Computed example of a mutant assay.
Amino acid sequence: MQYNFDELITRRGTGCVKWDELPADDIIPMWVADMDFRCAEPIVNALRKRVEHGIFGYTHVPEKYYEAVISWFKRRHDWHIECEWMMYTTGVVPALSVIVKAMTQPGDKVAFLTPAYNCFFSSVRNNGCTVEEVPLVYENHTYHIDFEAVERSCADEKTKLFIFCNPHNPGGRVWTREEMERLNEICMRHHVFVLADEIHNELVMPGYEYIPFASLSKACLDNSVSCNAPSKSFNTAGMYISNIVCNNPSVREKIDRAININEVCDVNLFGVEAVMAAYNESEDWIDQLCPYIWDNYQALVAFFKERMPQIGITKMEGTYLVWADIRALGVTSDALTERLINEGRVKVASGTMYGERDGEGFIRINIACPRSRMMEGLERIARVINQK
Score class of each variant (00 low, 15 high):
residue 293 I to A: 04
residue 293 I to H: 01
residue 294 W to A: 11
residue 294 W to K: 04
residue 294 W to D: 12
residue 296 N to C: 12
residue 296 N to F: 09
residue 296 N to Y: 04
residue 296 N to R: 03
residue 297 Y to F: 09
residue 297 Y to N: 08
residue 297 Y to V: 04
residue 299 A to I: 07
residue 299 A to Y: 03
residue 300 L to M: 02
residue 301 V to F: 01
residue 301 V to H: 02
residue 301 V to T: 13
residue 301 V to R: 00
residue 302 A to C: 13
residue 304 F to D: 10
residue 305 K to S: 15
residue 306 E to I: 08
residue 307 R to V: 10
residue 308 M to K: 00
residue 308 M to N: 02
residue 308 M to H: 01
residue 309 P to C: 13
residue 309 P to H: 09
residue 309 P to W: 10
residue 310 Q to M: 13
residue 311 I to A: 02
residue 311 I to S: 01
residue 311 I to E: 02
residue 311 I to D: 02
residue 312 G to H: 06
residue 314 T to C: 14
residue 314 T to D: 14
residue 316 M to S: 12
residue 317 E to Y: 07
residue 317 E to D: 15
residue 317 E to C: 15
residue 318 G to I: 11
residue 319 T to E: 15
residue 319 T to P: 06
residue 322 V to I: 08
residue 323 W to F: 05
residue 323 W to T: 03
residue 323 W to R: 00
residue 324 A to N: 12
residue 324 A to W: 06
residue 325 D to L: 09
residue 327 R to T: 15
residue 328 A to G: 15
residue 328 A to V: 10
residue 329 L to N: 07
residue 329 L to S: 10
residue 330 G to F: 09
residue 331 V to C: 10
residue 332 T to Q: 05
residue 332 T to H: 03
residue 332 T to E: 09
residue 332 T to M: 03
residue 334 D to Y: 00
residue 334 D to K: 00
residue 336 L to F: 07
residue 336 L to E: 11
residue 337 T to M: 01
residue 338 E to G: 14
residue 338 E to Q: 14
residue 338 E to Y: 08
residue 339 R to K: 14
residue 339 R to E: 14
residue 339 R to D: 15
residue 341 I to H: 04
residue 342 N to S: 13
residue 343 E to Y: 08
residue 343 E to P: 14
residue 345 R to K: 15
residue 345 R to V: 12
residue 345 R to L: 14
residue 345 R to T: 13
residue 346 V to H: 02
residue 346 V to G: 05
residue 346 V to A: 06
residue 346 V to Y: 03
residue 346 V to K: 01
residue 347 K to C: 13
residue 348 V to N: 05
residue 349 A to K: 07
residue 351 G to Q: 08
residue 351 G to E: 12
residue 354 Y to C: 07
residue 355 G to Y: 03
residue 355 G to H: 05
residue 356 E to H: 07
residue 357 R to Q: 12
residue 358 D to A: 07
residue 359 G to T: 12
residue 359 G to R: 01
residue 360 E to M: 09
residue 361 G to V: 03
residue 362 F to W: 04
residue 362 F to Q: 04
residue 363 I to R: 00
residue 364 R to F: 09
residue 364 R to Y: 09
residue 364 R to A: 15
residue 366 N to L: 03
residue 366 N to I: 01
residue 367 I to S: 04
